[in-house]
Amino acid sequence: MPFKALWITETADGKFERNIVERVIDDLPAGEVVIRVLYSALNYKDALSATGNKGITRKYPHTPGIDAAGIVEISRSELFGTGDEVIITGNDLGMNTCGGYGEFIRVPASWVVRKPDGYTLKECMILGTAGVTAALGLHKMELLGINPSQGPIVVTGSTGGVGSIAVALLAKSGYEVIAVTGKSHADEYLQFLGAQKIENRDFVNDTSGKALLRPQWAGAIDTVGGNTLLTLLKACKPEGAVVSTGLVSSPKLDATVYPFILNGVSLLGVGSAETPMTTRLLIWEKLKDVWNIKDKLNAIAKEVSLEELNLTYIDSILQGKIMGRIVVKIGEK
């Protein structure tokens, strides 16, 4: 059966082209579960894959999309039956396995999560990898004992997908949130999500050369990296925790050990793609219950078609022009 998919090809001269083509299920990789995809989402990693970044996707042609939500069409696993509503975030989907920007995917059953009760498939994709990443960051901080009484939490890249959801999750959990953004028109949006203070990027861009700064926050969820991450560590309160989830500015960290050995600050990494299934299920349970931010999701998301994604939004996210989450309507029930 033919279906529509975004197809990235590499030309003989090393350039990459994006086209929407027809494919067939028989061409998909091996797996126990065939899913008819209704929604996907746009992540920075998807845009890199769609523009030929071989650090993300080794072989082309390829269909990106690290998030997918839809209905089980064929199952050779006792865990899922035809008609089940399911989601996938991460694993190898959309990286080296044809991903959610196609109307069908075929994947191992071990990647698949049953849709949480109380959420629609679209809402699951508003959260998607960004939501799992933000929630994992908060989860790891709280495992170390971080709580709202210890002081504010900084969120950098606060208008992006991970940042927007992190602001909403932290506010829902009772934290004072300092949202850092380079967008001058984002105050109303961030206040709606729950930010109590909004600062520009200079707030977390220390250039003094000092190894430590006056402690100002109990922790942070950082999507930027580079000197921003370094500043967050240097000004973190004793026994605080800083979560690193991205490298928009730089993958390098030119740090001393002083924040760690003098102030006991913890640097926590979040790589949500390889999250064990037990933790993944726990995170979705928390997003359904104690971290439920359904009332914020519509403000975070913009729905687009696969054609609009290809023409506009893949390039826009690479240029830093996206606010919140882009949800991609792929198919119909």
Rank of each mutant, 00 (worst) to 15 (best):
P215R: 08
A235S: 15
M1V: 03
A134C: 08
A171T: 01
R76F: 08
E176P: 00
P29V: 00
D254R: 10
T181M: 03
L6P: 08
K54T: 15
L212R: 09
V107G: 09
V24I: 10
L268G: 05
D46N: 05
L318A: 11
T278M: 03
A220K: 04
I153D: 07
V265A: 07
P276F: 06
G100T: 02
S244R: 03
L136Y: 00
G226N: 07
S75C: 08
K140H: 12
V242T: 08
V113F: 07
D27Q: 14
S75K: 10
E303P: 01
P116D: 13
L230I: 14
H62F: 12
D315K: 14
L309R: 08
A186C: 11
G131V: 10
A68M: 13
V328D: 00
D13F: 03
V107T: 04
S266Q: 12
T89K: 03
E303Y: 01
P64D: 11
F16I: 05
P108M: 02
I35G: 12
D84G: 08
V24E: 15
T312H: 14
M277V: 13
Y101A: 03
N227Q: 14
V155I: 05
F104N: 00
A220L: 03
S40G: 13
R76K: 14
L38M: 13
G271K: 03
A30Q: 13
V34P: 05
N205F: 11
L233R: 02
V248T: 15
I293A: 05
G269Q: 11
L38N: 07
N298S: 15
G163P: 09
G100I: 01
E274N: 14
Y175Q: 06
S305D: 12
V107F: 05
